[in-house]
């Protein structure tokens, strides 16, 4: 029975794992092909000859991806730090602090999620133009400190899965709101925080539309924008493009792995209830 269960689990993991990995394998395979091999049809999965030079050629071609990498690290690093602070505080306020019109304010936060980004693009662009922020990182950095509606909503939902007794117990011990958050609630929300960190990282690392609009110099823009420079109107060097795409994806995979360690059950709620 136990063996059967393992067979079943691994069977499912392997089957679906493979199906979900196909796009990545495709990227990997293309990144090692010569340009002429990428032109063949039906596509070949095994590169031959192996064009390892796509990696250095793509990374250090007409554009210096070291600079884009540095820029992406700065912009994404700020975003992760900002969201972990601001979204947590705002969500905490919505979940636990009794303020008048809380429901109404929360509805407004949710409403901002429901406007498609394509619409606010131009008004936002004009706003930042008036601030003189275009061609700087500010339009990508400052708004991160005001929280992200999606994360506020998500964290609020997670706060609400934590029993109110936790707060009450701490409050009896004389903790203020901030200390309750820091010492009691956050340690119980590691998976949710890791989720916010991962999403913020991935969202900003891969964000294309905003850096596209606000940054366009060879020295201030990001990896996602740089990657697209391989796309010509009539001709795309897919092999070098994929090589750079794989390199850009590596940090995402690493971050995912790294933050995954917080996805470990066994949170010590046992002492409080039972």
């Amino acid at each position: 029975m136990r063996v059967l269960r393992y067979v079943l689990i691994y069977g499912l993991l392997l089957t679906f794992g493979f199906i979900y990995t196909v796009p990545f394998l495709w990227m990997l395979s293309t990144s090692f092909k010569t340009l002429s091999q990428t032109l063949r049809f039906p596509p070949e999965w095994i590169p031959g000859p192996w064009a390892f030079e796509n990696y250095p050629n793509g990374w250090m071609g007409a554009f210096d991806f070291n600079i884009f990498f540095r820029n992406s690290v700065a912009i994404t690093g700020n975003a992760v730090l900002a969201q972990m602070t601001s979204s947590v505080l705002i969500a905490y306020a919505f979940a636990r602090i009794r303020v008048p019109e809380r429901g109404f304010l929360f509805a407004i936060v949710l409403a901002t999620m429901m406007i498609p980004p394509q619409v606010t693009l131009i008004p936002q662009y004009i706003l930042f133009t008036k601030f003189g922020w275009v061609e700087t990182w500010l339009p990508l950095m400052v708004p991160q400190w005001t929280g992200w509606p999606l994360f506020v909503f998500m964290l609020r939902q997670f706060f609400r899965t934590l029993p109110a007794d936790l707060d009450d117990a701490a409050r009896i011990d004389g903790c203020g709101s901030f200390r309750i958050l820091w010492h009691v609630l956050l340690p119980n929300m590691k998976p949710a925080l890791a989720t916010v960190a991962i999403f913020t990282f991935v969202g900003n690392w891969n964000d294309f539309l905003h850096p596209l609009l606000y940054l366009s110099r060879d020295d201030n823009t990001t990896l996602a924008v740089g990657l697209n420079m391989f796309r010509g109107q009539y001709r795309t060097q897919f092999n070098e493009m994929m090589a750079v795409a794989v390199l850009i994806l590596l940090p995402v995979i690493l971050i995912f792995f790294f933050f995954q360690q917080y996805f470990v059950r066994g949170i010590a709620l046992t002492g409080i209830k039972g």
């Binding site: 997670f158 899965t161 998976p191 949710a192 989720t195 949170i267 046992t270 209830k273």
Partner: peptide, 8 residues
């Protein structure tokens, strides 16, 4: 994350 948050 939700599943992991369910106390054992």
């Amino acid at each position: 994350a939700g599943l992991q948050g369910i106390p054992e």
